[in-house]
């Protein structure tokens, strides 16, 4: 194989532009990540009720997006590597969505009496929410 005779087109190194490689994006992302960590700390400790989880997850998705795109160079990677990572996210979303959709739409699951984990109940002992008598 005469490797030196291969045309330049054979090279698929879109990330390597020699001297044009700049460290500025890394600084920007680092500062932004520190900023978003402060933001998630303040929104998280403020206990914003039902919105707290959504806000925390949104910030986490933004942060991880910046890490994946800039630190992990996904923004200038080849299509194949992007597809692989995107596929893992799709399967993760499938797993989480259907599991959460299931547990969120069921009545509270009970655990056997005397089990160390116990079922959390604010109701009289022995009755689950759907078993309670109708109130006035």
């Amino acid at each position: 194989m005469a490797e030196s005779a291969l045309p330049a087109k054979e090279l698929h190194q879109p990330e390597e532009h020699g001297g044009r490689h700049s460290a500025v994006p890394y600084f920007v992302v680092w500062i932004a990540l520190l900023g978003f960590t402060a933001l998630t700390y303040f929104t998280g400790t403020a206990h914003l009720g039902p919105w707290a989880l959504a806000i925390a997850l949104c910030i986490a998705v933004i942060k991880s997006g910046m890490v994946a795109l800039v630190f992990m160079h996904l923004k200038d990677s080849s299509g194949a590597t992007r597809l692989v990572f995107a596929t893992s996210l799709v399967f993760m979303a499938l797993l989480l969505f259907f599991t959460v959709a299931d547990v969120a739409t069921r009545f509270r699951l009970a655990t056997p009496a005397g089990s160390p984990f116990g079922t959390e109940r604010s109701q009289p002992a022995g009755l689950l929410e759907h078993e309670l008598p109708e109130e006035e």
């Binding site: 054979e10 090279l11 698929h12 190194q13 080849s78 194949a80 990572f85 893992s88």
Partner: peptide, 20 residues
């Protein structure tokens, strides 16, 4: 056949591992 192809294969392999 070339370093470019090998590099791309290595990156793809690493991303497959990260996906798992």
């Amino acid at each position: 056949s070339s370093l470019g192809r090998q590099t791309e294969a290595m990156r793809l392999g690493m991303w497959l591992f990260l996906a798992t």
